[in-house]
Amino acid sequence: MDYKYIEQLLERYWNAETTLEEEHILRTFFRQSDVPAHLNRYAALFAQLDAEAAHELDSRFDERVLRRIADDERTVVRAERPTLLNVIRPLMQAAAAVVVVVLTAYGAQRAFERADRGVWDYNPASFENSYDNPQQAYKVLQEGLDIFSRTAQADTARAAVNPETEP
């Protein structure tokens, strides 16, 4: 087999003229088991470079760094201490909103009521009974008149006893 290409690549490798792709070819070539004797001496060199690439950090490192990151984040939050006004500001805003809504509703209700009431209706045609039961209506009327007569009698009696007080 002809190894001219590899030899050329190797020569260019020493002179730092190879591209990354060519260097990859070299590495792959020297990784195989049947490298010819005159090139085999360099296999160890490339094997060593491969071995150096195997140094790695384990997941414990990840955990530690992530914990440190989390700590940093927390301190940042703690650093900007919120004032009392800032804390209750949303509450105050909500309360203000509720007050505005209640006042508006109340005002609107008042306005509608006034419009509904209108002027007093004296027309007997539109008169409606207050009570469905005539007996009950009679009783209510009688009680009203009783109260009136009692008040009137008391006034008359007081006027008879003490005439000076009469206006």
């Binding site: 140094h55 790695e56 950090l57 990840d62 530690r64 760094v65 992530l66 440190r68 940093d72």
Partner: peptide, 30 residues
């Protein structure tokens, strides 16, 4: 985080001490 091994190897290459290199990697990332 995925750069950790590259950083670690570079640091290791310069200081030639695994603990030290790990520290340097951590500091770099932070």
């Amino acid at each position: 985080l995925p750069l950790k091994n590259k950083l670690y190897r570079l640091a290791l290459r310069i200081v030639a001490d695994t603990v030290e290199a790990e520290d340097i990697t951590e500091d770099t990332l932070i």
